[in-house]
């Protein structure tokens, strides 16, 4: 059974749908540190080069959610929920001109989820 590691709120889903209408197929990539970092960023599919160093955490609102594998090692014990907040970032993430930022809320994986993740 596949373990769910990432989810999305209704508000964020609505924003994703809007962006899909504007840009077509999209991907999420969770960025690392600095200024506008530590935030999920959304790009047109194919804009960002992805390979084995990017872990696919799951699909939310029809969009694959990726994270760099080195970062994932420190994140894997937490469950992520993508949400939105009003605001503005200076990254290339596509939602920014609309006056919103995607934001990630985290909680610890439950014991059951952790056991599933560890293949037990």
């Amino acid at each position: 059974m596949e373990i769910k590691r990432v989810d999305i709120t209704e508000e964020a889903t609505a924003l994703v749908k809007k962006l899909q209408g504007m840009h077509g197929e999209l991907i999420f990539h969770q960025s690392g540190g600095c200024c506008d970092g530590s935030a999920p960023m959304i790009f047109e599919k194919g804009d960002m080069y992805l390979d084995d160093s990017d872990v696919l955490l799951g699909e939310i609102a029809g969009v694959n959610f990726y994270m760099n594998i080195d970062q994932y090692k420190y994140w894997k014990h937490t469950f992520l929920t993508v949400d939105i907040t009003e605001g503005r970032g200076s990254s290339f993430s596509l939602e920014i001109p609309l006056g919103y930022r995607f934001i990630v809320h985290s909680r610890l994986m439950t014991d059951k989820e952790s056991a599933l993740m560890n293949g037990r």
Binding site: S31, G33, C34, D36, S90, F92
Partner: peptide, 28 residues
């Protein structure tokens, strides 16, 4: 905004070098 003005600057063939301060995904 980044996707509208930052990206056309970073990918502009008329630019000979880009210097960036920011976070890892945009850096990549």
């Amino acid at each position: 905004f980044g996707p509208e003005a930052g990206k056309p600057l970073a990918s502009n063939p008329g630019v000979d070098k880009v210097a960036f301060t920011g976070e890892t995904t945009t850096g990549q």
